[in-house]
Simulated assay, not measured.
Amino acid sequence: MGNAHYTVTRPDGEQIEAGYDVAAVCEQDGCTLEIDRGLAYLCGSTPGTPEDGCGGYFCSRHLYTDWEMPSDEPQPQNCLPCIDKRP
Rank of each mutant, 00 (worst) to 15 (best):
M1W: 04
G2Y: 09
H5Q: 12
H5D: 12
H5T: 12
Y6R: 07
Y6E: 01
T7L: 10
T7C: 06
V8D: 01
V8E: 05
R10N: 12
D12Q: 08
G13Y: 07
G13I: 08
E14D: 06
A18S: 11
A18N: 05
G19P: 09
G19A: 05
Y20P: 03
D21K: 15
D21Q: 14
V22D: 00
A23Q: 14
A23I: 11
A23K: 15
A24D: 11
V25K: 12
V25I: 14
V25T: 15
V25N: 02
V25P: 01
C26Y: 04
C26W: 05
C26H: 04
E27A: 09
E27R: 05
G30I: 04
T32Q: 14
T32K: 15
T32D: 12
T32H: 14
L33H: 14
E34N: 14
E34Q: 15
I35C: 00
D36G: 00
D36E: 10
D36F: 10
R37N: 05
R37K: 12
G38A: 08
G38P: 01
L39P: 08
L39C: 10
Y41Q: 06
Y41E: 03
L42G: 02
C43Q: 04
S45I: 06
S45M: 02
G48C: 09
G48P: 12
P50C: 00
E51P: 04
E51N: 13
E51R: 14
E51S: 14
G53C: 05
C54L: 01
C54A: 01
C54Q: 00
G55R: 04
G55Q: 03
G56H: 12
G56L: 06
G56Q: 03
C59P: 03
C59L: 04
H62D: 00
Y64Q: 05
Y64K: 07
T65N: 02
D66M: 05
D66Q: 09
D66C: 07
W67V: 13
E68R: 15
E68C: 11
S71H: 03
S71E: 08
E73Q: 13
E73M: 11
E73L: 11
E73K: 11
P74I: 13
Q75Y: 13
P76F: 11
Q77L: 11
Q77W: 09
Q77C: 10
N78I: 04
N78V: 06
N78F: 02
N78K: 13
L80E: 07
L80F: 06
P81D: 02
P81Y: 00
P81W: 00
P81N: 02
C82Q: 02
C82Y: 02
C82G: 03
I83T: 10
D84T: 13
D84S: 11
D84V: 12
R86Y: 09
R86A: 10
R86W: 13
